[in-house]
Design a protein around this nucleic acid. Sequence first.
DNA 1: TGACGATCAGTAACTAAGTCACAGTTCCAC
DNA 2: GTGGAACTGTGACTTAGTTACTGATCGTCA
Lengths: 227, 227
Amino acid sequence: MSALMDRLMDRFPALRDLECEARRVLEDGARPATLAAGTQLFLDGDPCTAFTLILDGAVRVQKVSESGRRIVLYRVEPGQTCVLTTNALMAAIPYGAEGLAETDLAVAIVPHGTFQRLLAGSDVFRRFVFSAYATRISDLLLLIEEVAFARIDARLAHLLLTRADDSGEVRATHHALATELGSAREVISRQLKEFERQGWVSAARGRVLVRDGAALARLHQGGDGAR
Amino acid sequence: MSALMDRLMDRFPALRDLECEARRVLEDGARPATLAAGTQLFLDGDPCTAFTLILDGAVRVQKVSESGRRIVLYRVEPGQTCVLTTNALMAAIPYGAEGLAETDLAVAIVPHGTFQRLLAGSDVFRRFVFSAYATRISDLLLLIEEVAFARIDARLAHLLLTRADDSGEVRATHHALATELGSAREVISRQLKEFERQGWVSAARGRVLVRDGAALARLHQGGDGAR
DNA sequence: TGACGATCAGTAACTAAGTCACAGTTCCAC
DNA sequence: GTGGAACTGTGACTTAGTTACTGATCGTCA
């Protein structure tokens, strides 16, 4: 087995069950590639030409408004695929958002034709794609709920908790946090100042230290009363 | 062929291509049912037990916040299926929103087992389900973009345009329009007052008459400058 | 090493949107 | 026609996003 297939099987356990024939199709078609951090993988409106499986690194998929504000829809990490890609390939529609390499990437590129053949020929591959769909839709629903109903302080608190490392540190600028939430930098700055005033976090250029995770969690759980 | 299958083929042309065997499975499994307007088909958190195909009528799928605000995610109309149902069935997760019969419904209910058998055995059925997925994901992305970035006046203008009948009339209360947009009744009332002041619409209890569709369209197209 | 540009953060004043607490209006059923 | 329910209007207030700045910090390169 090729080195690429080895890594694929490692990252995507579901593909280990691939039928003989399908495995051969994948092995023939898939091509490895590496991409530098910061690379734009696709833009909103781009056509989609290949199915990409992430082996290492992370892709951020975000929607950009006319005025330049952004909101992160989801991240694609090793072992995951990008619904938008699947979507774009299957329905032959352009991408609905932009994809950005957040770190250096190692990927396996499956050309359109191979993708279609796998979809037509392999139960396992189809299940794999379907289940990726299901997960993302749930994520998108949660996102809609958050954006439509949740207060920005609760959303920020949640974001800080999920992004904090073991020592409670979050490495991100106010601008990056705003992008993540689809909000504006100034809003995040204000909220962080308030959190700091409460003693819940301490902030420094480019990073935020979570001091009282429990307080942030309370905020997120609507202890404050959701809108 | 049974009357139910007749109507299914009529509403879902894609199913006409169903393979012989698959068609028999569907015919054996599908059961007709009717539901009165206002029936709750499922609630957020409910488990999903069957795949439902809408023959006549419309289902509104909406997310409800803790505080009771609602936002319409999408409508399921004749010839469409509900992604959440597919989602819930395939990944065995509960529904992520609530479904409400907006009108009297005629549906075909396909039990879980039949659905799984069709998915496993029929290319046509799989393609049918996949393409429904693809469409909805695009819709949900647009919704996220709207909610996150668009101004409420532009969104309301758009809503009025899409819901107006030939004579420009929209039959809906301010409350209903607010629910549609995930906003609040008072906000809609104020906006409508403003639209009325501009001479773009005229309002009466339970309905809005679009007088200057072009002006509303301009607003929606960000002629006002999106946020 | 210090000057410069770039990135990052703070702030005030303003607009837009959502919330709260009402009051007034219209409709329908009895 | 009366009472209650549904619908609409309004003002005061809070929260969030926008605009237009200023100041702080960093890396770099002459």
